[in-house]
Design a protein around this nucleic acid. Sequence first.
DNA 1: AGTTTACTTTGGAAAGC
DNA 2: GCTTTAAAAAGTAAACT
Lengths: 207, 183
Amino acid sequence: RLRKWQRRIRISNATERNLAFALSELDRMASALGLPKSVRETAAVIYRKAVEKNLIRGRSIEGVVAAALYAACRQAGVPRTLDEIATYSRVDRKEIGRTYRFIARELGLKLLPTSPADYVPRFCAALGLSGEVQKKAIEIIKKAEEKELTSGRGPTGVAAAAIYIASILTGERRTQREVAEVAGVTEVTIRNRYKELAEKLGIEIIL
Amino acid sequence: MKDYKIKIENVVASTQIGENIDLNKIAREIKDAEYKPKQFPGLVLRTKDPKAAALVFRSGKVVCTGSKSVEDARRAVKQVVNIIKSLGIEVYDDPDVRVQNIVASADLGVDLNLNAIAVGLGLENIEYEPEQFPGLVYRLRDPRVVVLIFGSGKMVITGGKKPEDAKRAVEKISEELQALGLM
DNA sequence: AGTTTACTTTGGAAAGC
DNA sequence: GCTTTAAAAAGTAAACT
């Protein structure tokens, strides 16, 4: 009887130790990524649910923490790309991605792909662009989604192209290089996306 | 119901052609054979007509990939058997070739809104992460295959063991999408 | 900027780490 | 889980010219 009790204490200690480690890791990453407290709390809830359902088996605590953070950002409408999350994690992008898919499915998190529009505020802020440009970029993205010009395309690439076009239309021009830098895509991708958007949405761009 | 044409792109088959095959001997005598036991236990043999690649193991088990039809896979295996037999190595005459997987492609002919399809088919039944891959992943239980659906309307069907599986999958999906008004 | 090569995803078998 | 094989889909990326 005494042994059983001691084992429980041992397990309890290990569980608490792991949880403490996970939460500190979560805080470290959230700080590095500049995420608000509400997102950390959402991520912590997701992580706890994953633990309750024993989804950690065969996976690293850090991987689940990273995936929970990725999911929380998306749910909150302030997405971070897997590359950004991976930059501050010991786990690589591929592993975080598959862990995210697993816990999202097991916990029944029903998340549609991130809309390019969700990246606009953050990218525009980093580029020092006004609210007018943001509004114009989001307007362009909405039309693009209606005309099915976003299926299968990377959300950050579409957001970058829309911001690039909007910056020109509003006279607050940024170069493809500058936009590519903050969006984490290449200039080639912005070029491909903006040409398609301009052509199919009938937007005239004077370079 | 439209009759979609399915193109078989790759057939994976396995069989057993003998026992205790001397892979080192094959590697020595066949110049284009690849054998790096430290890296992978199988020896790679390629046939040009039909074009295919075979992995030969010491146990006598063989995996054949790259064929465009089930019949080509069988022909490729026979060629591999003849090559090894010509080296004086004992092999079976009529190996039982089993198809393990068939990869096929098809085209619905219309652009698709993958977001709408994701919701229509049910988020719990699909995977769609354009940040990582442009295709929507749809797993069917009958036929038991996995289908990658793209915005162009083209798709890849894999995991089936009969050409019929791919055909049924495409028909089933087109019916579902039409019923959902997404096509 | 245009071209080429290459990596992302899916499935399956093989023997061994 | 990984390693190796082959092939398609479409997007993105990187290396060259």
